[in-house]
């Protein structure tokens, strides 16, 4: 079983690629021991963005369905996990077993409405925004989760890390999100190599042709949305336990959805490594800008958003495929890495 999965993962992948991925992984494993607390937080945010970017990439990059409302799934995951934890003391891992189906169900509702009634392209994207907004407004008035006053997880000083209850120091959270990012990467690779991945690519390339070739496009688009939603929901669980507070205005905000899109777009939509690279490039540059501004004594609210916009503009103009595909070609590892 394990051997066959490993064989499938490394099939057609040049040795050079495996070595480079190994180096990146080793660097990420060592990183928290050599950086300061502030940089550790930056790395956590970057990995969070890499994780959510990969989840978004399943829907858009693989199956060609543009979502601008993935904050919905993270928000649902965050609220379900936090609710179960604060009301019933149910830990995040068990909670995730409820979050993933809940988020997938939300995805299924949106997908069903859109794909059954021929809502496609930008109209589909608008529908995803609308549902995230429904959730934002709805949760803002949902008394059981304290409405707009927000939901707070109890914070105590912990003598040691409690991985089972996800209570502990940033180092533990770093490794949790790192493992999640690696697992998402492996999942994406396995999906792309499977029949479902082929069907998604066909749908992305030309949906009419995919239908003509006998692909049940409705079903496979539904799978894409539901898998993307379920994967994204874990990011919400992580968010809730890392930040310990949840506000509808914050977690369901369209800004969160856009942030999930930026990494893959900058790194390379539809590629496996692009979302990860894009997340690190974007967060790295944004933090550099931040520290440069504070060094210069500047305090400009909204500068980060303007900066994100500029990054996006530059990438679309100069590297329409994203940063990763040309880089992969330069490194000679573009084969077998779709």
């Amino acid at each position: 079983m394990t051997a066959s999965v490993i064989a499938r993962l490394s099939e057609d992948v040049p040795h050079r690629t495996i070595i480079l991925l190994g180096i990146v992984l080793a660097a990420l494993l060592i990183a928290p021991w050599v950086v300061n607390d502030y940089l550790l937080t930056v790395l956590i945010v970057a990995l969070y963005s890499a994780y959510t970017g990969q989840a978004w990439n399943i829907m858009m990059g693989f199956a060609g369905q543009l979502s601008l409302g993935n904050a919905l799934y993270a928000g649902v995951g965050a609220y379900v996990a936090a609710f179960l934890f604060t009301k019933f003391g149910i830990g995040p891992w068990i909670g995730f077993l409820a979050c993933a189906p809940a988020a997938a169900a939300c995805g299924a509702i949106i997908g069903f409405l859109a794909f059954r009634f021929g809502v496609a392209g930008v109209y589909f994207a608008i529908l995803t925004i609308a549902f995230a907004e429904f959730a934002r407004i709805g949760f803002d008035h949902l008394a059981i989760v304290n409405a707009s006053a927000g939901l707070f997880l109890p914070v105590q000083q912990y003598a040691h890390n409690d991985l089972w209850r996800l209570r502990g120091n940033p180092m533990m959270f770093y490794y949790v999100i790192l493992v999640a990012t690696v697992l998402a990467f492996i999942l994406c690779r396995l999906l792309l190599r499977s029949r479902i991945g082929y069907f998604w690519l066909a749908i992305r390339e030309d949906e009419q042709a995919a239908r003509a070739a006998g692909i049940d496009t409705f079903r496979y688009k539904m799978y894409a949305v539901m898998i993307s939603a379920a994967v994204t929901s874990f990011a919400g669980v992580f968010y809730a336990f890392f930040y310990n507070n949840l506000f509808p205005e914050q977690v369901f905000n369209i800004g969160r959805s856009i942030e999930m899109v930026l990494g893959p777009v900058i790194g390379g939509v539809g590629t496996l490594f692009g979302p990860i690279l894009g997340a690190f490039v974007l967060n790295g540059l944004a933090e550099t800008l931040n520290s440069a501004m504070s060094a210069a004594g500047l305090d400009l609210p909204g500068a980060k958003e303007v900066f994100y916009g500029l990054c996006l503009l530059l990438v679309i103009l100069a590297l329409p495929e994203g940063v990763w595909p040309p880089l992969a070609r330069r490194l000679g590892i573009d084969k077998g890495m779709r």
Binding site: L201, A202, D206, A209, A213
Partner: peptide, 15 residues
């Protein structure tokens, strides 16, 4: 209606 960015072999597999 072929799938332009997929390889010829992948297009055939799709069928």
């Amino acid at each position: 209606q072929i799938f332009p960015t997929l390889s010829v072999a992948e297009n055939l597999d799709m069928g």
